[in-house]
Design a protein around this nucleic acid. Structure first.
Lengths: 231, 231, 231, 231
DNA sequence: CATGAATGAGTCTTCATTCAT
DNA sequence: CATGAATGAAGACTCATTCAT
């Protein structure tokens, strides 16, 4: 009882406990989803008592928020580093991809949770997803804004949309690994995909110059008529 | 408008009810998410009695599955139409975008639910999300495969990744509307975004030919060192 | 529509329907028990529409009551026949057994329901089980009462208890068939058991005269001490 | 009285709670039957919160099973003690009766539940009633088997049937108390009934030697003809 | 009479959160 | 700080009963 154990020094045991629980939460969220997991699962995974979770986190929602914040803040910081500054956009974009894929390489579970459980889910009302989303998008939007002012951006492409597309491409690229379409253990594959995502974004998915069609005609006929008779 | 549908005459009392409930479910899912919605909400929204929902749907999960299938099957069919055939990839890609954005224009709530609640969420175990996802991705992968064999695809870009990126870009483009970054009521805006997504995918986000950098160096230094001291 | 069909004559179709449903109820009750069965089951088994059950029976409870009454009234009448009159008790007792086993032979399902679902279950509050139970027991009690007054009854055996034991023995004998300890299809076996029950009741389970022990000592020591420490 | 039990000291908080709930369940089952009882009733009766029941019992069915097992296992053990061994059958039978009536005296509610709600009811699918029933019957069957081999059993009486009849007589004897035909508070009456049951089983309900009728004629005429026009 | 869709009260069960030890 | 028993609100699901056609 009360054996203080390992009173070696360094960081307080409290912070360590907290991190243990947080880590457990990430793992459990990653596996079963926020709603599919119970506090009991987290406690068990962390190897602590049921009630202890509530010593470190006000409630389940705050736990989710913490998971998010811990992971997200670092990510945003690195994205900011990548997107800010005077370097050419191309390089910045490559760096953004680098950051995202590296984050995944280092902590796939964590990325999975952030992407699937938080960023794109109505769950965890405590998490201000919208604001966080806006934050990164905003960073890249600014990046593209500058690119546009320098004449680097594709004609007619709104910076905000460019930012969204960038993240869309990155997220789906990662999704390929998350859901097992690609082998998540293959570091070389991870690198290759990262590079392809970046280069395709920069220069398009097609070979050579973009065949920018001048006469865009929606060809709406078929698609639309059918679409209208949906439920 | 045109909501009455199928007023042909005959036996459609039952089918109509079913559709009413399905529609209500979509609306409630769209607003509160799968987990946040209660059967009671659906019933109320549909204007029917609680128990009636269970006349038409075995349980909450089957309701979700139906919502998904109804919306998804039509979508997939249209994507198939867009991605199949002998036309040039560029045109096909534009058509895929067309289909997605049109689906959103016609039924934003439905698309929101499919994207946010079903396709990318661990909820609704009954829904074989994975298979469905694979299905569309597979369609586009085949499209890009053919493009590659015709030499139309960017060198070194895997068709599967290309397919993922296509959907990533499209989904994030739509996300801009879903979360209100863009004005969802502005049809002109919707059209513009659609076009930009397509053209950027085709030719890249940058102006002119892709500045395919020969000497790619990960610039891993900063990103990695920091990433390693994860939680 | 409205095809009157088979307007042959005889008993009204209504009564026939009613009997069909009743029979179905017996079969379903026998299989799943009163609580385990739903009106839908009965309707299906009877091959009629859901709602029709409610045309013929006020509610589930009345259905059970009817099942009981139909079966029970006939049974009681026959028991009365067996127990009344001037014949010697032994013969009467044999006749009571005869009635019970014959009822089982003719309609095992019905007997099963009456024994398991109605006579000995708190279910079917509408059924005045107690009164019905009292009725048969009363009949046999009277029978034994007369036997006592004629000096035929075992010394010190209360008629009421004798009546209870009679039914206990009979019911358990039948239970052997109901639960499959004995082969319910073996008519010979049925006959044999019936006879054994009757004769054992009459003359005891032991061979020869009863070894009526004079000095009854409860031997309570062991049993009681242990019994007391039960939950 | 003596309710406090096991006040030994140690860790019995948990076990005590469990017993409290079990006891409450027995009481509620006894009063309203398995189906008529709600978990809320049990909780209230036990004076604990609703959810606590689920801490100690997986679900309603397991609660029932526990009620059964706790009561039944003790009962079976005592029956075994009574039925096994080398003593004369007569004594054993008396001991079996002793055990059953004593069990009732000590815990009438518990016996009521076991007899009415569990042993002879299709409810509580979790309970392997059949096996339990077979168990006790088997014990007594063995007892009668030995008696037969010693020539103590009535000629032609199958041990299995004898076992069934024994329990039938005992159960119905107890039923007299359970349903209030006899005064359950009258210990003297209880003793008297117990003795009568035992002696009647041993020597028959009739006075003197069994009037084993040689010419058994079913007198089927009346009973059968009527029985055939069943519902 | 017949049908089966519609209704909604009644219960079980889960699980986040609290609290006594 | 730790523990895990205790609490009770919330919500899915069932099914007897009603009722419009």
């Amino acid at each position: 009882m009360g054996q203080t154990g390992k009173a070696v020094g360094g960081e307080p045991r409290e912070a360590e406990r907290r991190r243990t629980i947080l880590r457990a939460a990430i793992d459990v969220f990653a596996e079963k989803g926020y709603h599919g997991c119970r506090i009991a699962d987290v406690a068990q995974q962390a190897g602590v008592a049921y009630g202890l979770v509530y010593h470190y986190f006000k409630n389940k929602d705050e736990l989710l928020r913490s998971v998010f914040e811990v992971g997200w803040s670092g990510f945003v910081a690195r994205i900011r580093e990548a997107a800010d500054g005077e370097r050419p956009v191309a390089e910045k974009i490559r760096q953004v991809c680098e950051v995202a894929f590296e984050a995944y390489r280092v902590d796939p579970r964590g990325v999975r949770v952030i992407i699937f459980e938080i960023a794109r889910s109505p769950a965890g009302d405590g998490v201000n997803r919208r604001a966080s989303f806006d934050e990164v998008i905003g960073l890249c939007e600014a990046m593209f804004e500058r690119a546009r002012s320098l004449g680097e951006l594709r004609e007619g492409l709104e910076p905000k949309l460019a930012a969204l597309m960038l993240f869309g491409a990155v997220e789906y690229g990662l999704t390929g690994f998350v859901i097992g379409m690609f082998d998540a253990n293959d570091e070389e594959g991870l690198r290759r995909v990262k590079q392809q995502v970046a280069e395709s974004l920069l220069g398009g998915v097609l070979r050579g110059a973009a065949p920018e069609e001048k006469t865009w005609k929606p060809a709406r006929s078929a698609a639309k008529s059918r679409a209208d008779k949906r439920t």
